[in-house]
Structures are given as C-alpha cells and as structure tokens.
C-alpha cells in the first residue's frame, strides 16, 4: 500500500540546513492501522506531509498503491490527493463560510465527476453516520470542537479514499471526545478497510495500532 524509500526533508534555517526527516524507509500494508509516534519536533508531521503529497521531499520516493506520487505532475498530484487520500488535521480545518454539509461535499465538488445532488446526498449520509444529521446546515462556529472533528472525518471519507492520514487529530480535544473521535477513525479502518495512519505523541492511542513507527531526530527508532 505505502512505501517510502530514502525519504528526506531538509529545511534551510538561519543556522544552516536542518534535516527534519533524515532518510526513512517504511512499508505499511493496505488496510492497516499504523501509528507514527515521537516527541514534538521529531519529524513525524514532516514525514506525514511527504507521505500525503503535501510537502515535496528533498530526496526519496513515496509510493502509494504503486504510484510514485512525487513523480506526478502538479495537477495529477492534486487529483491523487483528492481521490485517494483523506486528511484529518490537528486543527479545526473546516472553511468557516461553508455549512457542514458544504464542507463535507467540497472535495467531491473540487474533483468534479459526480453530480452535485449525489454528492450532497452522500455528504448528508456521512454526517448522519457521524451523528451530525441534525447539523447539516450548521456553520462550523455553531458546533462543538468534537463535532467539527467528526465533520472533518466525514469530509475525509467523501471520495472513499484508500488512505486516511490523521495528524494529531485529537490533540486539542477533551478525553471523552478524544475517545469518540478515535472510535470513529478506527471504525472507518475496520469497517471500510481504509488504511489509517495516525500521527500522535499519545502512546495510549498508539497502543491500539497494528504497526507502530517510532520517530526520533528524523529517523526511525528500531
């Protein structure tokens, strides 16, 4: 499913070049729940960004389902992100001017190809599955942080991606909501067979994962 070869990310700072990810080789099988753990600044979010096609590596290769994603053209990579990858960020990543149902439908609308009415019906169904059926027309500012995160998960699923990348998705939530959100993500992984990669510094969350990747100083700790 996912393969990284010699993946490296260097940032240029005032004090010279710093390697956020220093040459990582990684394999994650399809349908797995993998957790990438490490301390703040260990390079786990940079690794996740390169895996998800969000940040171009300084060196190395990322292959998702046989596609070398960084060899794709700009538009092809955008289409790949749109169709194959769902993102759950560590911040409330809904557009504030759009209703929840619009936010969820947005990736499908950007990608085109599906009728608007069908897209909205699917968005409403996904929000219903996340327990937000009564909040379709609500704006993000009108619902709680946990409900916003559920809407983000619904948005990640709208195009039925093969891979969900969740970067510290519960870091700003209370314990009860954190459990609920993780339950939703794990349900997606188990019931839909979607590969789930979770970036976290919470070891309790990582313990449920089938594969744990521990990162320190930009490298995998054996």
């Amino acid at each position: 499913m996912l393969s990284c070869r010699g993946l490296r990310k260097d940032y240029v700072t005032e004090r010279g070049e710093v390697a956020a990810v220093a040459g990582i080789d990684l394999e994650i099988a399809a349908g797995r729940y993998a957790a990438i753990i490490g301390r703040s600044g260990s390079g786990k979010s940079s690794l996740m960004a390169m895996i998800g096609g969000l940040s171009r590596p300084s060196r190395g290769q990322v292959t998702v389902d046989g596609t070398d994603i960084w060899s794709l053209s700009e538009n092809a990579l955008a289409a790949f992100r749109n169709k194959r990858i769902g993102y759950v960020f560590q911040f409330a990543s809904l557009l504030p001017t759009l209703r929840l149902v619009d936010n969820v439908a947005l990736p499908a609308m950007l990608g085109g190809g599906r009728k608007s009415s069908a897209t909205y019906a699917r968005a409403a169904a996904l929000l219903g599955q996340m327990g937000l059926g009564d909040h379709l027309d609500a704006y993000p500012s009108e619902v709680s942080a946990g409900e916003q995160r559920r809407a983000v998960i619904a948005r990640a699923l709208i195009n039925e991606p093969a891979l969900i990348l969740a970067d510290e998705p519960t870091s700003d939530l209370d314990e009860q909501t954190e459990i609920e959100i993780m339950d939703e993500l794990l349900a997606v992984n188990r019931e839909r067979g979607t590969t789930l990669i979770l970036v976290t510094h919470n070891l309790a969350l990582a313990e449920q994962a089938e594969q744990i990747v521990h990162i320190a100083h930009g490298a995998i700790v054996p």
Partner: peptide, 10 residues
C-alpha cells in the same frame, strides 16, 4: 487546506 483536499492550482 483547499490544496490538500485536491484543489488544483488553477
């Protein structure tokens, strides 16, 4: 965010 969820440059 828009780019991440698949918005093209255009």
């Amino acid at each position: 965010l828009l780019k991440a969820i698949g918005a093209r440059r255009g």
